[in-house]
Computed example of a mutant assay.
Amino acid sequence: MSSLRILADENIPALEACFGGSGEVRTLPGRSIRKADLLDVDVLLVRSVTRVDADLLAGTPVRWVGTATIGTDHLDTHFLEQHGIAWASAPGCNAEAVADYVLAVMALAAIERGQALTDGSVGIVGFGNVGSRVHRRLQALGIETHVTDPPLAEQGVSGLTGLDEVLACDRIALHAPLIRDGRWPTEHLLDAVRVQALRPDQVLISAGRGAVVDNAALRERLEAGGPWTALDVWEGEPLVDPQLARNVRVATPHIAGYSVEGKLRGTVMLAQALNRWQGVDSHPALEALVPGPAKLEALPATLEEALLAAYDPRRDSRQLRETVAGSRAERASAFDRLRKEYPVRREFGFHRLQGSGDPVVNRQLEAAGFTLVY
């Protein structure tokens, strides 16, 4: 096996542990990677902030591209395949972390509204790796759910419904990929008309791709009084609409999937894919990289308190809002810095909670994704 020249986004963890055996690994900030950086590179490893297309790769020796993300809309896969450049993504790598984020945000909305997480219905847009996990947990909690995913419905997946029914639910979670053309485009799926129709008593959570919602229309709706809204993704990232960020209840810098485990899982999946491409029978294991289990100091009395004890989105929201008064350059830089310097966050499944004396609470905690010990 020849040694590969590897360039990677500096925010991808465990690079040396997972790729050091394949060759020399260099790193750069993902947004600053340019063609000039790739003139002596065989393998490019990116995240969603790097657009990989002809402008970046034409005339370079890059033979393999990996993105440590679920989504691939930042990759021109047609160009890659037309030019014999192998590529891989990490589908599902951070899906559990995004599901954690959604449940924590729903818990916060419930507390602020004097409700329980299990009250009311939830509509889910997108039934892929994330949407299906959110659905599974909500179903386990006994929450009424409605899901729409036209491409999957066309393939015969049962139990799905239409967008209008989903948008009528008490809470709406958006997990559709960004698709700009074809039969089922999702760009501005929630356009001005649909955004205007959202009710003040609803909850809207967007943790998929920013452009699925018309951000300008949402800003106008919220200024007039709209749904309780949490946005983790934004049109025009790394620039965030300052007024929109002030008007939503939760504003976070595209970190819903930023768990320790999710990031490491993405790196491991790419390393495994690269090894298969090379014909190498070696598979780095996630278990060897993940820290020991996390523990909550005390078991909260309710499901909502437990979710927010494991992850409270208000901290991330405060930090992002502190950045929106600067210049465009300052705001963009701050958005990326918050992501780069994001603190350790563990997935619910890697928390070990002592079971309580209340079997109902225990069942709820396990349904929400926690691991209980007795």
Rank of each mutant, 00 (worst) to 15 (best):
L4S: 02
I6V: 04
I6Q: 02
A8I: 03
E10C: 01
I12R: 01
F19M: 10
V25A: 00
P29N: 08
P29Y: 09
A36Y: 09
A36L: 14
D37L: 07
D42H: 10
L45A: 02
R47A: 02
R51E: 15
D55C: 03
G59K: 11
T60N: 15
G66K: 00
T69N: 06
T69Y: 03
T69G: 05
G71Y: 00
D73T: 02
H74D: 13
L75D: 01
L75Q: 03
T77I: 09
F79N: 02
L80V: 02
H83S: 08
A90M: 04
A95E: 10
E96P: 02
V98C: 03
D100A: 01
A104L: 04
V105K: 01
A107Y: 00
A107R: 00
L108G: 01
E112K: 01
Q115L: 07
Q115H: 03
Q115D: 04
T118P: 08
S121D: 10
V125H: 05
V125T: 07
G128E: 04
V130E: 11
G131E: 05
S132D: 08
Q139E: 15
Q139N: 14
A140G: 10
H146Y: 13
P150L: 15
L152F: 10
E154A: 09
E154Y: 06
Q155F: 14
S158G: 07
V166M: 02
R171L: 09
I172L: 03
I172K: 00
H175Y: 01
I179H: 06
D181Y: 05
W184C: 11
P185G: 02
T186E: 01
H188E: 00
R194Q: 14
Q196I: 08
L198V: 14
P200Q: 15
D201V: 08
V203N: 12
I205C: 04
S206H: 05
S206C: 14
R221L: 13
E223C: 15
G226S: 15
W228A: 00
A230M: 11
L231C: 15
L231A: 13
L231T: 10
D232M: 06
W234S: 09
W234R: 10
G236F: 15
R246C: 14
A256W: 00
G262A: 04
K263V: 01
V268Q: 04
V268H: 05
L274Q: 05
L274F: 07
R276T: 05
R276H: 08
A285N: 12
L286C: 02
A288E: 15
L289P: 00
G292I: 03
G292W: 03
P293R: 12
L296F: 10
L303E: 04
E304Q: 13
P313V: 09
P313H: 11
R315T: 06
R318C: 11
E322R: 07
E322D: 04
V324L: 13
G326D: 11
G326H: 10
S327W: 13
R331Y: 09
F335Y: 15
D336I: 08
R339Y: 13
K340T: 05
Y342F: 07
G349E: 09
V361S: 14
R363E: 15
E366S: 10
A367T: 01
A368S: 11
T371P: 13
L372V: 07
L372Q: 05
V373M: 11
